[in-house]
């Protein structure tokens, strides 16, 4: 009965010829594309924070509020460390493309170290600043944004350590097989770029107002 309404004499039935394709069942590796798409999304979350920050700042009569000192020296050193680590990690990528596992391990280890220094530096900064998360609206923004970024640095660090761990297995990475290495690198660059924007908003922009 249900079928009664279905047309039976359509002029064309789907024409599907069969053709066996090479590599038909292999699942293509699209992780890099996935990561890039994901980072687009992530950057918009930071974008939301940045927008909120700028709106709060725009409405405030004094920014940062009275008595809230923004330290500059330590974060500047931290920035230099983080930005240069982006170049270091790239050396690791270059190395693996030349099949140089030792080079990969060396540069990734240096990057991990730099990342760790950055995190320690940030923790030190938190501990020595005279204000906490809930002190005032600037402090709210400051801790939330740097904290969120710090979390991302931490995740990036874990990715790098993961690559180092895996690279111990012989032949795990090679010049034609290093997607994991690339993904860690891409993520690290992303974390770096976000930091540059954050640094500009939180540290530099606060010097002139």
């Amino acid at each position: 009965m249900t079928d009664a309404t279905a047309p039976t004499g359509a002029a064309i039935a789907p024409q599907v010829t069969t053709e066996v394709q090479a590599n038909d069942h292999a699942h293509p590796d699209l992780r890099v594309w996935g990561l890039l798409t994901f980072l687009v999304s992530e950057s918009l979350m930071f974008g939301g924070f940045f927008a909120a920050y700028l709106m709060v700042r725009g409405a405030a009569s004094q920014w940062p509020p009275e008595g809230t000192e923004v330290e500059l020296l330590l974060p500047a050193i931290n920035t230099v460390i983080l930005v240069s680590s982006s170049f270091v990690i790239h050396l690791g990528d270059v190395a693996i493309k030349k099949n140089d596992i030792g080079g990969l391990r060396k540069w990734y280890a240096v990057t991990a170290l730099m990342g760790a220094v950055f995190l320690v530096g940030q923790a030190y900064e938190y501990a020595t600043l005279g204000y906490g998360l809930s002190s005032n609206i600037f402090a709210n923004c400051f801790y939330l944004m740097t904290g969120f970024h710090g979390l991302h640095v931490f995740i990036g660090l874990l990715l790098i350590l993961g690559v180092l761990w895996r690279s111990r297995r012989a032949g795990h990475y090679s010049d034609h097989k290093h997607t994991g290495v690339e993904m860690a690198e891409i993520y690290w660059h992303f974390v770096d770029i976000i930091w540059i924007v954050l640094f500009a908003l939180l540290y530099i922009l606060t010097q002139f107002s």
């Binding site: 687009v40 999304s41 974008g47 939301g48 924070f49 709210n140 939330l144």
Partner: peptide
């Protein structure tokens, strides 16, 4: 992809 994370940002601020 581009709009959801912005909501997440807003809700995180609210949660804090």
């Amino acid at each position: 992809l581009v709009s959801t994370p912005v909501l997440a940002a807003g809700l995180i601020l609210l949660l804090f």
